[in-house]
């Protein structure tokens, strides 16, 4: 018997994209690539159940329909391309925080007292990843998580996600435009071309 998939997607359908079915093994990472406006973000939002859509999704063999929506989103975490902050200070957005990860992402604990207004786009992006990880999700949906980062932090984030895959069997769908990055993070992925999803390997 084949090992149970961590994430099973069956006939997921958003916008005018063709229905998409796939399975992700525990700890597997796949990339998602396509021109802007082709529907990558909408696919991730559909998996996180944030928009109306067709299709069925299972996590560890359990159907999404049988889980409360907010529990689903806590386990299948979507990290949007643009992070959003609503309180004045960074720390007010965190209930718990891994200080080790914080240091690797280039921050001291003092960052928790920083004002959101002072943060650069890149700092927000790194902190948003940390925030998304603090709920210990089983699946990560990453929408261009390194788009505003330099080489060093791009590498740090790839390493952190890699460790989560190995140590906690977190499965990842990673939206990226960078060919080199696709090769580093995944063995296979999907291209969106003319409204259909084409599976490719690297």
């Amino acid at each position: 018997m084949a090992a149970m998939n961590r994430l099973n997607i069956e006939n997921l359908q958003v916008l005018d994209l063709a229905a998409w079915s796939t399975g992700l093994q525990p700890g597997e990472c796949v990339f998602l690539f396509g021109p802007s406006g082709s529907g990558k973000t909408r696919l991730l939002r559909a998996i996180a159940d944030l928009d109306l859509h067709e299709g069925m999704i299972e996590l560890d063999g359990e159907s999404r329909r049988h889980m409360l929506a907010h529990e689903w989103r806590a386990r299948v975490a979507l990290l949007p391309a643009e992070s959003c902050w609503w309180n004045e200070k960074v720390g007010e957005h965190f209930t718990n925080c891994d200080t080790d990860l914080l240091a690797r992402l280039g921050f001291s604990e003092a960052v928790m007292d920083w004002e959101i207004l002072r943060l650069s786009t890149g700092e927000k992006q790194r902190l948003a990843l940390l925030r998304a990880l603090s709920a210990n999700p089983s699946v990560l949906l990453l929408d261009e998580p390194t788009a505003n980062l330099d080489k060093i932090f791009t590498q740090v984030i790839e390493e952190i996600v890699g460790e989560l895959r190995q140590q906690k069997n977190v499965s990842v769908i990673w939206v990226t435009h960078d060919d080199a990055q696709m090769k580093r993070i995944a063995k296979r992925g999907w291209h969106i071309r003319n409204c259909s999803l084409v599976e490719t390997t690297v």
Binding site: R73, A77, E82, S83, W86, R131, A132
Partner: peptide, 10 residues
């Protein structure tokens, strides 16, 4: 966007 960001965090 704030409301949805919170939903994304569970």
């Amino acid at each position: 966007s704030i409301i949805e960001a919170r939903l994304m965090l569970g």
